[in-house]
Structure formats: structure tokens, C-alpha cells
Design a protein around this nucleic acid. Structure first.
Lengths: 113, 113
DNA sequence: CTAATGTGCAACCAAAATATTGCATTTCTA
DNA sequence: TAGAAATGCAATATTTTGGTTGCACATTAG
């Protein structure tokens, strides 16, 4: 039973990992996970960068499918969209599993040889 | 029971996600998972980019702690170092869990209110 | 020994990412 | 209604990233 190819999957997951590959964005995600929907201004406080920079990071996260922004009066509230996050997690899990299988095969062949 | 802060963890995981956030590097990781230790030239074949570009990608992965390279004669063999991969997976899992908890709390407060 | 093979290092380049500032627009509040 | 608050859009500057090429060096094969 040959290992399943995961190259097409990889191509889809790369943008998600890229979106998570920035400490500011990772903190934004963490904050949204903890506090639920937060406005841009709210997310800016304590971020150490300008509101515009935060907005751009939120756009990156949104394009990766990790968050979504909803207009509420004069402010825009951002919240987590957990689906892609879960996909990425599953992808990492698949890689880990594949690595474990490869290791097992190596072990077997060593025992046989 | 307050949710654990995951901001320091986030800072450590960001470089790992950044390293995984490129389709070429993700394919390299996949290949190393499948085929075990492979030389730079071996990894270059079929990558569609120059050997030097592949080398740079491998350096990025190595600095993130995801792979390591061992000199073997005149070639350098790269292999997966699964620890960081697993850490990253656990971090994603923690984020997911935290999000689930936040959702539960929201649900409760809605039922109470 | 000579030539081919596999790397490493450095310079260089174009494109993308990160962040800033300034200004316009919409919405709430006193 | 006037002003404050929250956001959106655009231009710009700086740094990082992904890629190339050329050359030097080490190692293996004939």
C-alpha cells in the first residue's frame, strides 16, 4: 500500500502556513481565539504597530481563509474562521504520520537486511 | 479555569510556519518524509529551480529546525527532524482547542443571558 | 592524474512583504 | 449639527524573499 501523495494538498496548505508565519499575525489569531470578535482598533491596541499595518495583516489572514471581518456599524469586527485552521492542522498531522510510516519502513528493511 | 496564554509559544512557532509557508519548501518536506535522506542534487531534480535555490530553501528549513543536513562524502544528505514539526502541530491543536473553548463559553453565556 | 560530480560562497536582481503617513468617508454621540 | 471615532484607500519607503549566475573547492570515478 503506497503512501498517499500529498503534493496537491501541500500547494493548498502553503498559503495558510505563510499566513501563520508571522509573529504579529499569530498573536492576532491567538487574540481572536481568546476574545472572540474584536474590532480593528481593538486589535491595534497593544500590537505595537499602526492600525493600517494591523489591517493589512488581517487582510492576509482573511485571504488565507483563517479569519473573516464583519461590518458592525462604524467598526469592522474580525473573528476566527476555524475550517482552514483545522485543515492546516490535519495537513501537519498527515506529514507527521507519513514521516512515521517512512521510519517504520526503514526499520523493517533494516531488520530484514 | 482560565485558558493558558499562548503568546510566547506563538513567537517560537512563527518561524516554523513561515518555513512551511512556501509550496517549494512544503514539497521538499513531503519528499524528505517519503524518501528519507536525499542529497541536494537529488532534491533539485524535478524541483524546477536551480540547485542554489533548493539549497537556500533547505537552509530556511534547517534554521527553523525542520530538517538537518549531514555531510556524506562529497554530498550533503538532508533529512527530516520531526520535533519542531510536531511542536507546530501541537501549537495548531492548542489554537483550535482554545477556539473551541471560547465558543463553548460564548454558548454558555448566551444560554444564561 | 584528470575529469566529472556535488557543494559552498558571493554578488546581484526583481518582486513581494511590512510598515508608515496623509487624506477621504462613514457613523456615532454630545 | 459639529466633532470625534473607526475605517478605507493610496502613495511611498524599506526590508525580505526567491531566484539567478559565476567561480572556487572538495571528492569520487576512470
Amino acid at each position: 500500500m503506497p503512501a498517499k501523495r500529498l503534493k496537491p494538498e501541500a500547494a493548498r496548505s502553503a498559503p495558510v502556513f505563510a499566513a501563520l508565519g508571522d509573529r504579529t499575525r499569530l498573536r492576532l489569531v491567538a487574540r481572536l481565539c481568546e476574545d472572540g470578535p474584536v474590532s480593528i482598533t481593538g486589535l491595534t491596541s497593544g500590537a505595537g504597530i499602526s492600525r493600517q499595518a494591523v489591517t493589512k495583516h488581517l487582510h492576509v489572514l482573511a485571504r488565507a481563509g483563517l479569519v473573516r471581518g464583519l461590518r458592525e456599524g462604524r467598526e469592522r469586527l474580525y473573528e476566527i474562521d476555524p475550517q482552514r485552521l483545522d485543515q492546516a492542522r490535519q495537513h501537519l498531522q498527515a506529514i507527521s504520520r507519513q514521516w512515521d510510516e517512512a521510519l517504520s519502513r526503514l526499520k523493517e528493511s533494516l531488520e530484514e537486511g
